[in-house]
């Protein structure tokens, strides 16, 4: 955790975060402290059930949808405690892409329009600009430009996932959270998404949860390694994979467990 000299701008600052499920019977996050830097890709890795997805959901307050759970500690977004930010507004700034591609059962066009329309954007011209920009941003434009009025459910899994990314881009967020976005996809679709993430980090801050260590090594600038709800190690990706500071990180990287 030697990021003292880092000059990058901090987007999220996580301080002493604990999170409990089942009215406190299960502690999913234990005293997490970390910083998320602007226009960088931060990867969360670790074995199943280690709390990485839970922490991800804290950033856009989706964790509050889980019954009987509560969180303490402070997470700030650009210096402001996210508990003081209206959750609906926060989610327009912090987009999320889910593990399973989940396009809405409507046309490709309407999928992209959904977010802006919920914010009251009605102007056809603006909507069409958003449509073009976000589809191009998600590297999907060429594949779907002739079938914009067809149902999104007719697309392949990889295309659906890129549509979900495009749908998120349509809100022009600051941060994009990705919860194992490639785990339901084949290797070729995965490659496309990874290339896309490399493009997207120029404009957006990205936090990605992944099971795949190689993926984390390929695409991320920072890596956070979680185990049993604890943040074991958080470092620059090259540092983390070449000189892990913690014995548990080393074991995990070298494949001794997990």
């Amino acid at each position: 955790m030697n990021n003292e000299n880092n000059k990058d701008e901090v987007v999220f600052d996580v301080k002493n975060v604990n999170l409990f499920y089942d009215n406190g019977a299960k502690q999913a996050l234990k005293d997490i402290n970390m910083k998320i830097y602007k226009n960088k890709v931060t990867a969360f890795i670790g074995p199943s059930g280690c709390g990485k997805s839970t922490l991800l959901r804290c950033f856009d307050r989706m964790n509050e949808l889980v019954d009987n759970s509560y969180r303490d500690g402070i997470i700030t977004y650009n210096g402001e405690d996210i508990k003081d930010i209206n959750s609906i507004y926060l989610r327009t700034r912090v987009g999320m892409v889910f593990q399973q591609p989940n396009p809405f059962p409507m046309s490709i066009k309407d999928n992209i329009f959904y977010g802006p329309r919920c914010q009251g954007v009605k102007d056809k011209k603006i909507l069409n600009e958003i449509l073009d920009e976000s589809l191009k941003g998600a590297a999907l434009y060429d594949e779907v430009k002739d079938i914009l009025n067809k149902s999104a459910l007719g697309l392949s899994g990889g295309q659906q996932q890129r549509l979900c990314i495009a749908r998120t881009l349509a809100m022009s967020p600051d941060v994009i959270l990705m919860d194992e976005p490639t785990s339901a996809l084949d290797p070729i679709a995965t490659l496309k998404i990874e290339e896309l993430i490399n493009e997207l980090k120029k404009k957006y801050t990205i936090i990605i949860v992944t099971h795949n260590m190689q993926q984390a090594a390929r695409i991320s600038d920072y890596t956070a390694f979680f185990m049993l709800g604890e943040l074991v190690e958080f470092n620059k990706t090259e540092e983390f994979f070449s000189h892990p500071q913690d014995k548990r990180s080393e074991d995990y990287i070298t494949g001794r467990f997990g």
């Binding site: 989706m62 949808l65 327009t92 999320m96």
Partner: peptide, 8 residues
Amino acid sequence: KASLALGA
């Protein structure tokens, strides 16, 4: 969830 995450 997707809808809520988009700020609806």
